[in-house]
């Protein structure tokens, strides 16, 4: 996993609620046996119509694609457990997703892949949606160390929550499996003691 660094970027606004993982990456693209290349099919059925023509109204097509921050409506990532959704978002170039809340499995999947996800109050999210609809070029900063999210013009400044364990993992590029493997003795002892 890459180390999470401080981010400065414009925001891609996706003002839709209940975005499910079938929309993030449709099932027909899950046949790959590696982790790469899913970004190409991120939001595939919203980006292209059924004749494979670019849907000019969809935000990813109207917006410069170098944004690292995706701002989404509530309950983002609901539905299937497919981690391909997190891979696709990361592969496309996003490093952060912000919503008023996330589906549980998606949240774990994202954090396990170095994709920072955090929640902000719905009112604040609406305020930001509004602000960037007027000033789409406004840049925002995310500093994981201080847990701060703030706009370049100083008009937005928020602190976000993340638990210490996940924060340490993201900052250092640590991976849960390394941690669990380091606990192997304890796991074996547990198996022994409980007759497993």
């Amino acid at each position: 996993m890459d180390k999470f660094k401080k981010i400065t970027s414009i925001i891609t606004p996706l003002d839709i609620e209940n975005v499910d993982t079938d929309q993030i990456i449709p099932a027909r693209f899950l046949k790959a046996v590696s982790r790469d290349g899913f970004g190409e099919n991120l939001f595939r059925d919203w980006r292209y119509d059924s004749n494979e023509n670019l849907n000019k109204d969809f935000i990813l097509n109207t917006f410069p694609n170098h944004s690292k921050i995706l701002l989404a409506g509530r309950n983002f990532g609901c539905g299937s457990s497919r981690e391909h959704a997190a891979w696709a978002i990361y592969d496309y170039g996003f490093r952060v997703v912000i919503s008023s809340f996330f589906a549980d499995i998606f949240k774990n999947n994202a954090l396990n892949n170095g994709l920072l996800v955090f929640e902000l109050n719905e009112k604040i999210i609406h305020k930001i949606f509004k602000k960037i609809s007027l000033e789409p070029k406004l840049e925002f900063n995310i500093d994981l160390i201080t847990q701060k999210f703030y706009s370049g013009d100083g008009s937005v400044e928020e602190t976000f929550e993340i638990n210490d364990y996940n924060k340490t993992c993201l900052l250092n590029g640590f991976d849960n499996i390394d941690y669990l493997l380091s606990m192997k003795d304890k796991i074996l002892k547990f198996e022994n003691e409980t007759g497993r």
């Binding site: 981690e83 997190a86 499995i105 999947n109 396990n112 499996i177 669990l180 606990m183 796991i187 198996e191």
Partner: peptide
């Protein structure tokens, strides 16, 4: 019983355990 992502599948294959926050 609950669903997990692929990184978690790897965790369970490797260690028969998962890191989970209590819901």
């Amino acid at each position: 019983a609950f669903g997990i992502g692929t990184s978690e599948v790897e965790m369970v294959l490797s260690t028969q355990c998962l890191l989970q926050n209590k819901p």
